[in-house]
Each structure stands twice: as C-alpha cells, then as structure tokens.
C-alpha cells in the first residue's frame, strides 16, 4: 500500500490518498493521469492492467486500486 501511495503522490501531488475516497468523482485522476498511473503500476507490481480494468470502481480510491493490484497479481 505504501508503495502505491508513493506512486500516486508522484503522479498527482498534494492529495491525501489515505483519506481521499473518490479520486474519479472529485476529478483528481483524469484519463491522462490514469494512463500514467497504469504504466507505473504495471512496471512496479509486474501486472497487466487492461482497458477492461479501467472502470471508476477500480480507481475510486487507494484501497480499490490496491484491491485491483492484488487481484491481478493473483491471476
């Protein structure tokens, strides 16, 4: 989780990712930032995030992103 928070802070600083609950609804992550984030996550966690995974539910907050990473790691 710490690793993920660090990546998020690099991509879009100035947000408290531990408490922020809606990164999409509050327009913190747009499609450009999401693509950037996906690139970082793929490299860092050795997973393959595909377009089907890019739904608001997966990118809502740090916890949902983390859950997605765990799921993809198990696949």
């Amino acid at each position: 989780m710490e690793q993920l928070i660090k990546i998020l802070e690099e991509i879009k600083p100035g947000v408290d990712y531990k408490t922020e609950t809606d990164l999409i609804g509050n327009k913190i992550l747009d499609s450009l930032k999401i693509v950037q984030l996906v690139g970082e996550l793929n490299d860092e966690f050795d997973i393959e995030i595909t377009p089907i995974d890019i739904v608001p539910e997966n990118f809502k907050n740090a916890e949902t992103i983390y859950a997605m990473i765990k799921r993809l790691e198990d696949e």
Binding site: S31, V35, V38, G39, N42, I49, T50, P51, I54
Partner: peptide, 16 residues
C-alpha cells in the same frame, strides 16, 4: 473514444 481508442492505444504494448 476514451474507452475504445484512447485506452486501447495508451495501454497497448508498443505504447507502453
């Protein structure tokens, strides 16, 4: 276009 073009292009292997 975002879901079927932008993400498809951005997440493709050559693009990565």
């Amino acid at each position: 276009l975002r879901d079927y073009v932008f993400y498809s292009v951005s997440l493709s292997k050559p693009f990565m």
